[in-house]
Design a protein around this nucleic acid. Structure first.
Length: 431
DNA sequence: TCTGGGGTCCTAGGACCC
DNA sequence: TCTGGGGTCCTAGGACCC
């Protein structure tokens, strides 16, 4: 049995926790560069704002409907997430942190008063962290996700569901008839693992609800679609196919990519940007104690603008490494190889590929041991200094001198303070 | 004027091997 | 007239997730 604990409209809820005056207002959180809406309060959803909708399309709602838009404050969301996750863990013996706002809890069989217990955990998260969440409980992860969806829907639209399902929905307690009705009330597109494409194909075959999907034969689904959808069907039928993953698997690829605040044509700012992306990617790589065997760099113009497009990328083979200096050197060399003047570039990125554990990188360089050890010590020192004194305190020179001189940096005109992670931005309480 | 960022897994087809 | 069988590895593309 599994539970899924999921923060409601998570980024918006994080902002509201520190600015209660946002309660009841339509609020959206915008992506990097204040480009599009990536989180919406219920009030904003009610205005018809779609996930990922560009800001320029909804901007007018500020005056018309009192829409409030905030720049994404990921430092804040990450920290609030950690606090929420540690409380969610109290629900059962094992936990998988699935995303910034969701975690599965496993090993729940035999726990008495589970539904009540879930309610208590929900209360505690709300009181201690200030984040409202919903909890779904069921026999499989896919069903727990579906139960969570019901709990959220029932909270948002009281009256369309039995009142006791709002916020906490334990499917295992639902009598057969009621359970069937709940699955019939859930659109097939809302099932975890069913995206736009497959939902459309299912609709052609008359499969519109989660219930109808459970009625399909698993073997048929495998032949017509894939083993992936087959697994989803089996999970919906109550057969657990997706296990809880308590320890996060090391990443196979690590990316750092950004859209620019404005278009970039010249090479020097691009070199700066790409150096910084390679630096960030290298930090992530060292956090999992990995080595990259390949590095990819890309640049491109806007896919949304009419006219000729320019998209170019290259992959460079590496002696497996986690050394920022070598990764930055590879990234800038790659950029020089693909750069061509005269294009209004809007985005660049660095990806680390062919990632292996530490042992392989060392084995490949048996004679180089002492030097390798020195590289690692230097990188550890750099990471420790940057951890203590802030990102970029020590950096390679090619990432540029000062933040203010950046011509390519992102727009973030509406960011709230980093209330919990930056000492100068901690809110003051007045007596 | 203005559209995010970071991942995973599966499959089909080609190259290549014996 | 007539052309095997079985396997692995790699890549590109598609689909999905948040």
């Amino acid at each position: 049995m599994f539970a899924l604990v999921d923060g409601n409209n998570f980024y918006v809820s994080c902002e509201r926790a520190f600015r209660p005056s946002l309660e009841g207002l339509p609020v959206v959180v915008l992506s990097n560069n204040d480009g599009c809406a990536i989180a919406r309060s219920n009030e904003a959803k009610a205005l018809g704002i779609k996930m990922g909708q560009p800001w320029f399309e909804i901007q007018h709602m500020q005056h018309q409907h009192g829409l409030v838009a905030l720049s994404a404050n990921f430092a804040l969301y990450g920290d609030i997430s950690d606090r929420m996750m540690s409380l969610a863990a109290g629900l059962g013996p094992t936990q998988e942190i699935y995303s910034i706002d969701e975690s599965y809890i496993g090993g729940l069989d035999g726990i008495r008063d589970l539904t009540q217990r879930a309610g208590a955990v929900r209360e505690r998260i709300l009181q201690w962290v200030g984040i409202p969440c919903c909890i779904g409980i069921a026999e499989t992860k896919t069903l727990a996700k579906l139960a969570n969806h019901i709990a959220k829907d029932a909270e948002r639209k009281p009256g369309s569901y039995p009142a006791d399902l709002a916020r906490i929905c334990n499917l295992t307690e639902q009598p057969g008839e009621r359970r069937r009705k709940l699955l019939q009330a859930t659109a097939v597109a809302d099932v975890w693992g069913v995206g736009r494409r497959i939902a459309a194909q299912l609709a052609e075959g008359g499969i519109l609800t989660a219930w109808e999907l459970t009625q399909l034969d698993a073997g048929t689904v495998r032949r017509r679609w894939s083993v992936v959808l087959e697994r989803t069907v089996r999970e919906l039928q109550g057969q657990s196919c997706i296990a809880l993953e308590a320890a996060p698997a090391p990443k196979q690829t690590i990316a750092c990519t950004r859209s620019f605040g404005r278009t970039v044509r010249e090479l020097p700012p691009l070199l700066e940007a790409v150096s910084e992306f390679a630096t960030r990617a290298a930090e992530k790589l060292r956090m999992q104690d990995g080595r990259a065997g390949q590095l990819q760099v890309f640049i491109h113009t806007s896919p949304h603008r009419p006219g000729p497009r320019f998209y170019r990328s290259t992959i460079l083979p590496l002696q497996p490494t986690a050394d920022t200096r070598r990764l930055v050197a590879a990234a800038t060399a790659g950029l020089r190889a693909i750069y061509e003047p005269g294009h209004d570039l809007v985005k660049a990125g660095v990806m680390l590929l062919d990632i292996t554990g530490p042992e392989l990188g060392q084995a490949a360089l048996p004679l180089d041991e002492p030097a390798n050890r020195d590289h690692r010590r230097l990188m550890s020192a750099m990471d420790a200094i940057n951890e203590r004194f802030g990102k970029g305190t020590v950096h390679v020179a090619s990432t540029g001198q000062t933040k203010s001189a950046k011509t390519w940096g992102m727009r973030q005109e509406r960011r709230t303070p980093r209330y919990t992670t930056e000492i100068s931005e901690v809110p003051l309480a007045r007596a």
